[in-house]
Simulated assay, not measured.
Amino acid sequence: MPTVSTPDLCDEHGDKVRVIEGQFRHYGGKQNFSGQIATIKCFEDNSKVAERVKEAGNGRVLVIDGGASPRRSLLGDNLAKAAVDNGWAGIVIYGYLRDVEEIAPMPIGIMALGSVPRKTEKLGDGRCDVQIEFGGSIIRPGEYLYADLSGIIVSEKAL
């Protein structure tokens, strides 16, 4: 996949792209990634994340609205490895992850607000493929996400 530049895409497409606001950090081995969006909304429970990363990713990006909670990690090395093995292009977490050292070399784009060592509860809570909202933007399943060192943007159509 060719490298994309979020600044160039913003210049070229103007208001047709939405910038996701916030201080997301890169954790995976790929700092430039893109793909069609699949969503999860969950809070301090990564049960749905565990289910989703075991499905065929087909080059998609999993976008997780974890409510920005710093108390529990929504992704660790085992789930990140499952995402790599199943063909996900990337994961963006409006929340926290763990196992930073193990995730760093993995060939996948992973962004989150930060890291915390505590794992989540496993209660089966959460919803998949729903509209979510964070970073000043609404994010819908089926839209397209582009991420690099400059930031994250979302578009209704592939760019």
Rank of each mutant, 00 (worst) to 15 (best):
I37F: 05
A104P: 03
E51H: 10
L79Q: 06
S73Q: 05
E12F: 07
E12C: 07
F134T: 05
G135R: 00
A158G: 11
S34Y: 06
D99M: 06
A89G: 08
Q36T: 09
Y27E: 02
R72Y: 13
I139N: 00
G136T: 14
T6R: 00
D15W: 07
G14N: 05
E121L: 13
T39S: 10
P117G: 09
A56Q: 15
E156M: 08
L79E: 07
E51D: 14
D77M: 09
P107Y: 05
F24S: 04
Y94P: 01
I37N: 00
K16H: 10
R60M: 14
I40E: 02
V63E: 03
R52M: 15
I153L: 05
A158L: 15
G114L: 06
N78I: 11
D8T: 08
A158S: 15
Q31D: 15
D77Y: 10
K119Q: 15
T3F: 12
Q131V: 14
G90E: 05
D85Y: 12
A50G: 12
M111S: 06
E12Y: 03
N86L: 06
G22Y: 01
I64P: 00
P141Q: 02
F24L: 10
V92K: 03
G124H: 09
I132C: 03
G126M: 04
F24K: 03
A158C: 15
D129R: 06
G109W: 00
D99K: 05
L149H: 15
S5K: 04
V130E: 13
I132G: 03
S5V: 09
S5N: 08
A104L: 07
L79F: 08
V61F: 05
V53H: 01
G76K: 01
I139W: 03
D45C: 10
Y144M: 05
L97G: 04
V17L: 02
V63W: 00
D85E: 14
V92D: 02
W88E: 01
R98Q: 11
G151S: 11
L62K: 01
P141V: 03
L9N: 03
V61I: 10
V84R: 06
Y146Q: 00
V116N: 13
R127M: 13
G151I: 03
